[in-house]
């Protein structure tokens, strides 16, 4: 083989490697580009309602111009763009359609899960309605349709508009796989919330200003309230939290911080500390709280009525971890 031929083959090989690498980096962008413009999903009309103003879009941090003080709730779920259109009827009611595009379906589910209470309707992937407001998610989109003040026709116009928007969205609605950790029974209605950031947690259950749990955009967390049946027949509730970290070291550090700073337990097993054993403690308000590490997973119990209920809940959740993807080992985030 001549030197020229060798050089030629090397160049072709390098080009192929470059193209392969470049191609492997592209799918996300292609996926993004395939999405319709958010504003194109807005309904152009609604029967009996006239458009009040032109549609508006807000991208990234500019969301604060629309929801001053509330934008962070969306930014915590990979917010990309919002499109809004307002209609009004002859009696002065307004119909506001807001379509929020998030970075992925799991985050559209996440922002929906922050408040899913209401009458559940078959619109999109999940929907709840009450007092003139319909909230639903489908694909990477979270949608709010509000009729205010509630007109006599509010329910039907909101439903029709919601169905129109949902039908315009063809994307797949993938829920976070961490939801597989939920128990099959005894979850309090509408208490499940999927989140990433400390600000989201603190608006659900305030723990600390310090980010003890090392929450971040690449961390997946799930919380729910669960009904507990005590031995004496009493029914009570507790809050559970399960967190999946991208790195085992982060999970271990979060375990240490939570145990030491929230539970105030310096060593996990008294004079002969064994790292990472589950810990349950009675808090000053007499409730029980606990933590267990099964790296890269962290499980937390709060507001439990007894040591037994907290321990039982921790162990039950840990037993469900089997089979879920682990970051770095499987196809986790």
């Amino acid at each position: 083989m001549s030197e020229h031929l060798v050089e030629y083959v090397l160049r072709i090989s390098l080009l192929l490697v470059f193209l392969t690498v470049a191609a492997s980096c592209r799918p996300r962008k292609e996926q993004s580009d395939q999405r319709p413009q958010v504003a194109h999903l807005l309904p152009s009309s609604s029967q009996g309602w006239t458009e009040r103003s032109a549609s508006h879009t807000y991208s990234g941090l500019a969301l604060s111009d629309y929801i001053n003080g509330g934008a962070e709730a969306y930014l915590a779920y990979g917010f990309r763009e919002l499109a809004v259109r307002e209609f009004q009827n002859t009696s002065g009611s307004r119909l506001t359609v807001e379509i929020y595009e998030m970075d992925r379906p799991e985050n559209a589910y996440g922002i929906y899960s922050t408040d899913s209470a209401g009458e559940h309707w078959p619109v999109g992937a999940d929907a709840s309605y009450g007092n003139g407001l319909l909230r639903f998610w489908k694909g990477p989109y979270f949608v709010r349709i509000l009729c205010w003040p509630p007109a006599a026709s509010a329910e039907s116009v909101v439903r029709q508009t919601g169905e129109k928007v949902a039908n315009a969205i063809s994307a797949e609605s993938k829920k976070p796989d961490i939801l597989k950790l939920l128990p099959e029974t005894d979850i309090l209605p509408d208490s499940v919330c999927y989140f990433h950031r400390q600000t989201s947690l603190n608006s659900i259950r305030f723990l600390s200003e310090d980010n003890l749990l090392r929450l971040a955009d690449d961390v997946e967390a799930l919380t729910w309230e669960q009904r507990i049946r005590e031995k004496d027949g009493d029914t009570n509730t507790l809050r559970q939290m399960v967190i999946r970290y991208p790195l085992e070291t982060t999970a271990a550090a979060a375990y240490e911080d939570f145990r030491k700073q929230f539970l105030k337990v310096e060593n996990s097993a008294g004079p002969n500390p064994e790292r990472n054993v589950p810990v349950v403690i009675q808090m000053p308000d007499q409730s029980f709280a606990g933590v267990a590490l099964s790296s890269p997973w962290l499980m937390i119990i709060l507001d439990a009525p007894s040591y037994e209920s907290a321990s039982h809940a921790l162990l039950q959740t840990e037993s469900r971890l089997t089979g879920l993807p682990t970051p770095g080992k499987d196809n986790g985030p």
Partner: peptide, 20 residues
Amino acid sequence: MTPVYHDEPTSVKLTRRAFL
């Protein structure tokens, strides 16, 4: 693994003075 129970409650509840 049975969780270890620590029976010494410690002051961890957020108090107004503490957070201020």
